[in-house]
Design a protein around this nucleic acid. Structure first.
Lengths: 135, 135
DNA sequence: TATCTGTTATACTATAAATATAACAAGTAA
DNA sequence: TTACTTGTTATATTTATAGTATAACAGATA
């Protein structure tokens, strides 16, 4: 897997995990229906506990990014990904608000912030290792 | 003060406090050099502990949004506010990244996200109670 | 002399994050 | 059947953060 954890970060491990898995889905590196490592396997690979991986998987399952079956284990959502509905847009705005406020207070222009957004969209949708050979 | 806390929120009280104070500065409702309530007064007004207010003030002092003097107490930064330097832009991008990634995964368009940003900029810089009579 | 300021120290409770073991039930393959 | 892996659940422990509760100190003010 492409997961890279920073165990010294103040960002919880399970959050780093969900973030990178969602970005993997957003970038297309993780494809619909693709199987993910079992909680025990991924935990061993990353050197963390089984329950931390399980927490991340459960959260992504609740949000609709993953499906979990007895038979196939954990797979990337094979059907429709969770939508960009009003509930999500509302939450997005609540999360963005303090970031925008500090940007304004510091004099960051709206264009500057939108440029960062544009850059993120470009790099997430077109990641460095898209067509790379699979090892 | 205009501070409104949600004690049931999963967002820490000190974070709600710093967020709303920064937004107050960004909006111009809090003006340069303006005195803020003492830690004891604000804590009593909000029904929270002295140390929670003090933590918020200290963080904003460290970032350069506030100054604290024995004489004048706590005041809004009377000189230059902290700049939109590369360190801040880097942190801003790190904070925005997981939000952008989920937006992409859900199919939120870049224009849609930028529209939310634009709306936030407009509402923060032009708050409802700007020219309102002070009670 | 009081009083208010920020500041520091100590202690306690509650919660979240992460780990460590263990066990169970469902499915798979020998 | 047996053995193994799967997700899942349960329990317990450790660590760190958040918040509160008191108390006290030093500088400034009236």
């Amino acid at each position: 897997m492409f997961i890279e954890l920073n165990l010294q970060s103040d960002i919880p491990i399970y959050k780093q995990l969900t973030d990178q898995l969602v970005e993997g889905i957003a970038s297309g590196i993780l494809k619909a229906g693709q199987p993910l490592p079992s909680v025990r396997t991924l935990a061993a690979d990353l050197g963390i506990n089984l329950h931390t991986v399980n927490k991340a998987y459960q959260l992504l399952k609740q949000d609709g990014f993953l499906e979990i079956h007895r038979k196939q284990g954990v797979i990337v959502q094979p059907g429709n990904l969770p939508p960009s509905d009003q509930a999500f847009l509302d939450k997005l705005e609540r999360d963005l608000r303090p970031l925008a406020a500090e940007a304004i207070a510091r004099g960051t222009s709206q264009q500057e912030l939108e440029q960062i957004i544009a850059s993120l969209y470009e790099r997430i949708q077109n990641p460095p290792s898209q067509g790379g050979a699979s090892s």
